[in-house]
């Protein structure tokens, strides 16, 4: 699999570390009030996944290259990258 780094272009998968699904983190309202914190949202964020068979927006780190984090969309059935949207 070759991964399109927005900085270095397509490079071998071995140069990258995976950062998982690109999720948006729930907003924590301050000051934190534990009993009324939205547990369900945080549980969703930490543990539940869409896990699609198809387009998946995910994070990559070009560890053995430019050391940039970026988001990309990939088809999880074919490993084709669908866009090189930067993050």
């Amino acid at each position: 699999m070759r991964i399109p780094c927005p900085c270095c272009g397509p490079r071998a998968m071995a140069e990258f570390s995976y950062g998982g699904a690109d999720l948006s983190r729930p907003v924590a309202s301050l000051p934190l009030d534990a009993p009324s914190a939205p547990d369900a949202e945080w549980n969703d964020y930490v543990y539940r996944r869409d896990n699609p068979a198809g387009a998946h927006r995910e994070l990559w780190f070009h560890a053995a290259g430019c050391r940039r984090w970026f988001a990309a969309r990939r088809d999880t059935r074919t490993n084709d990258f669908l866009s090189e949207a930067g993050a």
């Binding site: 570390s17 995976y18 999880t76």
Partner: peptide, 8 residues
């Protein structure tokens, strides 16, 4: 495992 989500 390879590391990235996959159904391939």
């Amino acid at each position: 495992i390879d590391g990235s989500n996959s159904y391939a």
